[in-house]
Nucleic acid binder design. Sequence first.
DNA 1: GTGGTCTAGACCACA
DNA 2: GTGGTCTAGACCACA
Lengths: 126, 126, 126, 126
Amino acid sequence: MFQIDIISRTPVYEQLVRQTEKFILLGILKAGDKLPSVRQLSAELSVNPNTIQKAFTELDRRGIIFSVKGRGNVVSDKALKALEVSRRSEFSEIKDKIKDFALAGISRDELHKYIDEIYDEMGEQK
Amino acid sequence: MFQIDIISRTPVYEQLVRQTEKFILLGILKAGDKLPSVRQLSAELSVNPNTIQKAFTELDRRGIIFSVKGRGNVVSDKALKALEVSRRSEFSEIKDKIKDFALAGISRDELHKYIDEIYDEMGEQK
Amino acid sequence: MFQIDIISRTPVYEQLVRQTEKFILLGILKAGDKLPSVRQLSAELSVNPNTIQKAFTELDRRGIIFSVKGRGNVVSDKALKALEVSRRSEFSEIKDKIKDFALAGISRDELHKYIDEIYDEMGEQK
Amino acid sequence: MFQIDIISRTPVYEQLVRQTEKFILLGILKAGDKLPSVRQLSAELSVNPNTIQKAFTELDRRGIIFSVKGRGNVVSDKALKALEVSRRSEFSEIKDKIKDFALAGISRDELHKYIDEIYDEMGEQK
DNA sequence: GTGGTCTAGACCACA
DNA sequence: GTGGTCTAGACCACA
């Protein structure tokens, strides 16, 4: 299920956080579902337990999962909602990127076309 | 001219690189123009000279400026062209971001609208 | 009777201890009353029997109940008295909390008002 | 400045977080002040750098300080404000404790008196 | 078994 | 020098 790209510059724990969130948005993980245990994931991905722990701690902090000692990590009821809100708040993050494109002479039509392509592509996948 | 956001998560040297490129794309810096010296920028921005140097080295590496010993750093002739090409190659970088938005239930129409707003806004500024 | 909040940060066994003590203070459980058996509670609350046992052992240690092999767990004669004393000894525990509030600019009047509200609220419930 | 109680049950990193916040509320640390470096604190308190790091990461996350690579940790401008708000939100935490006291036969007058004592005591210290 | 904390020690990016 | 990430390995509380 989880997959780590060792070469990538984004930290392992962040990849784990991001992937977990993605699985929830995709409906692969649902509220109440139990995540693999720290040790299990550690063995499966050959990643140090501390690193897995760090990812889970972050997810717990974000209200995406809740960790209970002796029981494991479970997807929170409000996870999906929380994610949709937080993703939306990242909306403005691409603003600077788009401005850069505009500056480099990329027309708005080109961008519109690109976005449609991505959405079409996703629609087919899904 | 240059402005550093010390709190920002993006490294100072990267901010410098990005801003220099922006000035070139905006026509504020033209081929043949001399950039401020490392010392001058360092003092002006209260930034470690090593950091300024790192930015210039990176810009040189990208073919945006060329450093001549004892004469300073000058904007390359091919800078503008190079930037337009490289920006276009960054196009795919936002692909994952857009997919994330799509996943979080943000419609393509919302995105289109957002992009139009940005372009309109820039048109007025420019 | 007993209710466990699985998400809560306070350990399940501690919730059990606390609730038992509360029932005694409220007069719901009286000296000589028999508590539900470990098995029964375990099934009822879907809680690991070890956890129930741990709670009972702790209550025994505190002199609130006494366990008789083969006969179950019974509320001690001195339970009520013991609890009133021990609660009073916890008095100082909130001292640091109150200092924190004072430091954060919360006035003593606010605190007084808050306490009155709680007592009023309880009076009505009771 | 910082002091760790090794015997205490509350984790070292949490003690560090709490103490930093306290120093800010007391005005000992002000917005813009630089905190000791991870390594320095580590040596000073004989605590592993990772543990110090964990505390700083948490403070950064809470918006109390901001960590900048290569520069250090600085008290945020909004730190004081943020702390006053967060402390206030902990207000309800003592509700259950107070109810426990009421149940154990501690009168509201006793509590009022206790609070006044604490505030008086603090007034003199300050 | 399951999560949480901590030490020891290494390595990297950045200033 | 300064923060950030990661591994290896230990130990504890809890279920």
